[in-house]
Design a protein around this nucleic acid. Structure first.
Lengths: 170, 170
DNA sequence: CCGTAACTGCGAACGACTCGCAAAAACTAA
DNA sequence: TTAGTTTTTGCGAGTCGTTCGCAGTTACGG
C-alpha cells in the first residue's frame, strides 16, 4: 500500500502575526533555561507560518524553499522540546508521519477512513460528544493526539449507494 | 520513549469452540480459491485461540510456545489475505504495532492516552455516541480500526487531584 | 570574551512493515 | 499417483518514520 498524502480541508490561522508570537515563544523557552538556536527558531517559524499541521520531514526540507533546510534529527528533537514546553502538539492522522502544530489554539481532528480527508475543528465543537462519552464511559475523549476516525459525509453516501446497487440485484 | 505494552482489560471470547470455526474459515478461504497452507492455518489458530488482539510478531513467535514459530513476513502476508477475505481486522491502539483479531464479533476500542489501558466494547455500546457524531458532523464514527482515545476514569481523577494540589499553592 | 552547558549535524540503529525471488507446498487434472 | 500449474513460503534486503550516540559547535551567564 502506498503512503497516502493527507490533505487538510480547513484553514487554521492567518499566517500574518507570526513574528510577534514567535518572540513570545522565545521568551517562554528562555524562561525555562532553554536556548534559542537558529535551528530551533526555524522550527518555530515553520509552525507559526503554517496553515495546518506539518511533518518533521517537511520542516527539515524548509517548506519547499520558503525556509532554509535543516537536519531532520534536530527538527525531531526540537519539536520534542517545544512539545515538552507546551508550545507544540503533534497528531497522528493515519498511517503517515506524525504532524506538528502550535498547541494553541487547541484543535481536534476528524479523519475519514476511506478518503483520508481531515476536518479540523475547535475543541468546543466536540464538547457535546465529549460529555456523552464521559456519561457513558467515565472516559474523557480527546481528539487532539489521535483523531476521531470514521466515514465522512461523502464517503458515507457513496457507501449507501453501493449498498443500494447490491440490493437492486435480484 | 519505550514501546509500552498494551494490556487488555476485557475478555473477548471463550477459547473453546476454536476448531469448528477454523474449519468454517478454511471453507471461506477455499471458496475464494485460496490455499490452506500450514502457515495460514497457524495464523488462524492463533487468532481463534486468542483472548484479545495480537501483534504479527507475537503470532510469528508462536505465542510463547503455544504454537510453532513461523516467518514474520508470511504472517503479515497471511493476515493481509485474511483481512481481504473479511475474516480478520486490525486495530492501531497507539504507538506500538498493529494488532489483529477475528473480524466477528465486531469490537470497538477505547484507549487511555495516559496509562494506555484498553477497553474493548461491543459495537452497539457506542451507537449512542455514533448517532450524536452523525447528527453534528454527518460523519459515521468507527472505533474499530482506530480507537476512541482519551483519559480513563482513573487517570482522569488523578489529573483532577493534581490540579487541586496546584491550586492549593498560594 | 571565556567557560561550560545545551545544541547541532552526521551516521548508524531502530521498529514495524513490505518486497523480490528462488525453493517448496497445495490443489487440479490426468 | 503423479505431473503440472500456481500459490505460498522463507529468507534477506529494503523502506519509512523516528531515535540514538557522539564529536564538534554555539548560546548565553559570568
Amino acid at each position: 500500500m502506498l503512503t497516502e498524502e493527507i490533505e487538510l480541508t480547513t484553514t487554521h490561522r492567518s499566517p500574518a502575526l507570526s513574528a510577534t508570537n514567535i518572540e513570545a515563544a522565545v521568551k517562554a523557552l528562555r524562561e525555562r533555561g532553554l536556548r534559542v538556536s537558529a535551528a530551533r527558531r526555524l522550527v518555530l517559524e515553520a509552525l507559526y507560518g503554517a496553515e495546518g499541521p506539518l511533518s518533521a520531514e517537511r520542516i527539515a526540507q524548509g517548506l519547499e524553499g520558503r525556509l532554509p533546510r535543516s537536519d531532520l534529527a534536530s527538527v525531531y528533537r526540537n519539536l520534542e522540546t517545544l512539545e515538552e514546553v507546551g508550545l507544540v502538539r503533534h497528531v497522528h492522522l493515519g498511517h503517515g508521519p506524525g504532524l506538528y502544530a502550535l498547541a494553541a489554539p487547541e484543535h481536534e481532528y476528524l479523519v475519514c477512513e476511506s478518503c483520508h480527508a481531515v476536518r479540523t475543528v475547535a475543541k468546543a465543537e466536540l464538547d457535546g460528544i465529549r460529555s456523552q462519552v464521559l456519561d457513558r464511559f467515565g472516559f474523557e475523549a480527546r481528539f487532539t493526539h489521535f483523531p476521531l476516525v470514521g466515514l465522512c459525509p461523502r464517503c458515507l453516501s457513496e457507501s449507501h449507494d453501493h449498498e443500494e446497487n447490491e440490493h437492486a440485484h435480484p
